[in-house]
Design a protein around this nucleic acid. Structure first.
Ligand SMILES: [Mn+2]
Ligand SMILES: [Mn+2]
Ligand SMILES: [Mn+2]
Ligand SMILES: [Mn+2]
Lengths: 144, 144
DNA sequence: TCAAAAATTTAGCCTTGGCTAAATTTCGGC
DNA sequence: GCCGAAATTTAGCCAAGGCTAAATTTTTGA
């Protein structure tokens, strides 16, 4: 009984982390690609209003993942950089794992965006091992 | 650009469906196991207060997935049954897929609870094909 | 330079999903 | 049949994440 409860409480925790992970990952990407991360670009990427993006960023500033001065571009704290790097890494593995199974590019992109947040370290390392074993096959296991 | 937006909008849709899927699945399970689905049992299983469970059930009644008379046990509408059956099926495949890769039981349970909601039909059918191919191996691909 | 445009922030609204406290209804045992 | 316990519902609080409208600040270009 208590086992099942923990299962769902873990799910709720994962949901709380999700937005944080997606946002810091996006900010790191924008910093790399354009040199700076502006609120408008972030909102555009996520397909939400700047107001929504602003509120989420404000929460992540309270949580010391993001830093910025008013009306200025956004930066990641060291805590934020660490989360971004780890999330990006996990996201990549999940995406490449799906691709290696034969999931089409656009489907794998959408599915990985959700799945990534629910893959535990143990499962991730198993995905990695699977990728390594299939590294020299050019064909996916289940071609379309 | 718009591709990325759709990716996240799909993610938000998935989140909206998640609670619905978990609840109808749970109700179907309780109906099978105990003959009826009471609010207290549902709340216990999810590890939330009966008040929280009640509010979610009320929403799902508005959405015509659940039906009941006040102070009475809960039932699934035909729409709810359909969702429950499909969700259960997808959940099972995701769980068995993880297990077949060598993910330990308790980890697979937790991860599948989150992952299931983000697996598209295309990815699911690829998981199924993978399972069929590995059906006669007693050993998982990546043993612990 | 300085006015218009763009970007950011604030105010205020909504829904969902958490909670506790309290009211109401149903159930069980005597 | 009734009383107390259990279950359900209602009321009211909170935070997150969605929105539009409006205020504020920064940037841009004539
Ligand atoms: Mn990601
Ligand atoms: Mn994501
Ligand atoms: Mn499920
Ligand atoms: Mn689930």
């Amino acid at each position: 009984m208590v086992v099942k409860q923990r299962k769902f409480s873990k799910l709720r925790q994962a949901h709380h982390r999700e937005k944080a992970e997606d946002y810091v990952e996006m900010i790191q990407e924008l910093l790399g690609k354009q040199g700076e991360a502006r609120l408008t670009d972030i909102a555009k990427q996520f397909g939400v209003s700047t107001v929504t993006a602003h509120k989420i960023v404000a929460r992540l500033q309270r949580e010391r993942l993001i830093a910025s001065k008013p009306y200025r571009a956004l930066f990641l704290t060291s805590k934020g950089k660490k989360m971004a790097t780890q999330s990006k890494h996990r996201h990549e593995i999940v995406y490449r794992f799906l691709r290696s199974l034969g999931v089409p590019e656009n489907v794998a992109q959408v599915d990985a965006e959700g799945i990534e947040h629910h893959v535990s370290p143990k499962t991730l390392s198993i995905f990695q091992r699977f990728l390594k074993r299939n590294v020299n096959r050019n064909q996916p296991l289940s071609p379309d």
